[in-house]
Design a protein around this nucleic acid. Structure first.
Lengths: 214, 214
DNA sequence: TGTACATCAGTGAACGCGCGTTCACTGATGTAC
DNA sequence: TGTACATCAGTGAACGCGCGTTCACTGATGTAC
């Protein structure tokens, strides 16, 4: 009791399920891959290198993942969780139904892309060829759901109203494109520096106020 | 003269610059890589496989390209040319300054992404790490220039007016995001099927009519 | 509490593979006289 | 027109490399009695 640590047996890093050999290789592998993807691009990681970074033998990852693609899927899954949480937190910081809540969700999205461009790209390159990952698809829909909820509240309609779906998709397209252009072009092309918040507010207003057809 | 081919010495496929050994390996390699990228994703091509498809030895490509990255750059360069031409042609099919011209440019962009999702993705994954390819950057700016021109004509302002740049960037973000979401999600998430033309017209109108701040 | 056993995370050596790139070469073409 | 030479696109063999994955193993932990 004179120790400075918590009274429990002090879980190593993340998952406290046990204090086994390594402690928590799975999470550390995912972190290592995240790093690698950030440094060398979506396809620029190898199981071997990830194991090296986690300080284990090259065979160790196979105790936690079936094969290479499954590791990538793990990274994407984790990233999608974080993205959704960030979006939800952003929305919660503003009044329900406000335009600010919508813009804040967009900003969280852009911020994620900017903070982890490699992982962000990975999330969206993986959709091809990994169709048989229903959990990833579900998580993707959850993320979209956050936008839908905010748009519905803003328009004072039900989430499954086609108008809401349409506007939410517009918002998402826009923010998605902005995110990608931002990380691809860095500062170029867009000669003028953009204030993201102003920008997202303008767009949210334009999309959520525009009449359906014309 | 009794032959069924044309009177000239019948250039093999594309560039007629000479009837050398192979004829026109460079173009055929680029075509092969395009195919491979389409099939196996941006990083899923190898110099060896491309050579195999073009029917030459694995060393032959190095007579036309310095190394692997240069081949990819060649593919991207060619793709950007085609994209710009498609956008220009789309704009030319409508009255200068019309909203239709803007929407048509957007549609050309989306169509390109849909027709060649792999190459489209490649174009935008390459921007990282290939900063030292000024020709690619120039071509990218040319593509953006097409949008800027149309937006300027539509708003009746000069192309370098900040308002024009801003609106053009908004349009591009939106269309870019829509393109990516479309090829990533295929039909999913967007529960309702989208009529691209209506969609792009609505967006063009919303963006080019929206007031700057609020 | 102590012993025997089952579990299973991590080891380390090994495999076969396809890749990117190099090299000296060959042989068809274009050019100068 | 004919011959000698320079050019250079494509060859094919070879290299070293890092990778993904497998395998029998070891040794720390948790569990039953």
């Amino acid at each position: 009791m004179s120790n400075d640590t918590s009274p429990t047996d002090a879980p190593p890093t993340v998952t406290p399920k046990s204090g086994y050999h390594h402690g928590d290789l799975r999470a550390q592998l995912i972190a290592a891959v995240r790093d690698l993807v950030e440094t060398h691009g979506p396809d620029g990681f190898s199981v071997a290198e990830a194991a090296r970074r986690a300080g284990v033998s090259s065979a160790a990852p196979y105790k936690h993942f079936k094969d290479r693609p499954e590791i990538l899927r793990g990274v994407v899954s984790e990233a999608m969780d974080r993205l959704r949480l960030a979006m939800e937190a952003a929305a919660a910081a503003h009044p329900t139904g406000s335009l600010e809540a919508v813009a804040a969700i967009g900003l969280a999205y852009v911020d994620f892309a900017r903070a982890e461009p490699g992982v962000f790209r990975l999330v969206f390159s993986l959709t091809e060829g990994h169709e048989h990952a229903p959990d990833l698809q579900t998580k993707g829909e959850s993320c979209f759901g956050v936008v839908v909820q905010a748009a519905a509240a803003c328009l004072d309609l039900l989430p499954d109203d086609p108008q809401v779906q349409r506007r939410a998709y517009m918002l998402w397209s826009f923010v998605h494109g902005h995110s990608f252009l931002h990380i691809d072009m860095k500062t170029k092309v867009t000669t003028a520096k953009i204030d993201d918040w102003d920008y997202l507010m303008t767009i949210s207003r334009a999309i959520l106020a525009a009449e359906a057809r014309g």
